[in-house]
Design a protein around this nucleic acid. Sequence first.
DNA 1: TACCAGGTAAAAA
DNA 2: TTTTTACATGGT
Length: 313
Amino acid sequence: MESLTAELYPKPPFDFGLTAGSHTYFRGTYGADMLEDGDYRRLLNIDGRLVLAHVRSTGTTNEPALMVTAQGPQVSGKDLAAVSDLMAWNLGIDADMGGFYQSVKGEPVLESVTSQLYGLHPTRAVSVFEAMVLAILGQQIAAAVARIVRTLLIETYGQTLGVDGKTYHCFPTPATLLEAGIDGLRKMKLSQRKAEYVLGIAQEIEDGALDLEALKHSTDEEVVARVTRLRGVGHWTAHWLLIRALSRTDAFPSGDLALKRVVSQLYFNGRILGDREVEEFSVRWSPYRSYAIVYMFAADRQGLIAPVDQIRR
DNA sequence: TACCAGGTAAAAA
DNA sequence: TTTTTACATGGT
């Protein structure tokens, strides 16, 4: 087992605990992401080799610095560079929160939310494929259920590496999921239909007909047009992909039930808006609607939002 | 026991 | 073109 170290300097303000915590929903381990005692760990597949990324903060929110360690059998300097780049991406260290903070000045709700979550950066999935599978898996089920299914899938089909007596899991590859087949995914508690969606997409990737990672170079509109052609992907999934996998600042999954619930609590005293209504309301956050969503959900998960007595429909 | 939950495709109107 | 309905699972 070898180990190499590099440093990263996020764009301030950057709160490492808040940002890494949002990967795990502020609850320690979540699937392939682990946060323990201020240490964020994530197993990666770098050109076929398994490398454990380990990140911890060596700075402060206003003068942020991170130490990245790459651990694994035969880790090269090139692997370290790849790991370092992936962690920089997945922790969103380059995101500029200043413009967003400036734009919510005087906005009664988000000005308060952003000041309480000062330094939170939007996080990003390691791969577009991972974000796609997780989004499909999470369609129309409670977050608690999605968590169970997600963990089961990763721990069953993700490649593993043992480091210091602990076992770490990668996110499964398209090829592995194809091999698992419908039956394998059904055993992971995916519905028949979701299993078909995931395998259909994995098959297109294996056939070379679909390159999800290349979407990073497409415009928001092109991404939505391309991915909604896939069976199992609608407006909601496409927009979450823009936020979680492609780091776009102004996406808005207007059908999202949890999103509508949070907006209703923060702005409408419990009245739930229709899809078109929230969409129209969301222009107040443009061109930072993705950031507004990230902050509202983080505030919700952190218990910073006072619950309204009753949700009205 | 019902109904609901961070939707979508396909059928029906 | 717009509006229902089946889908599947664990929580409440």
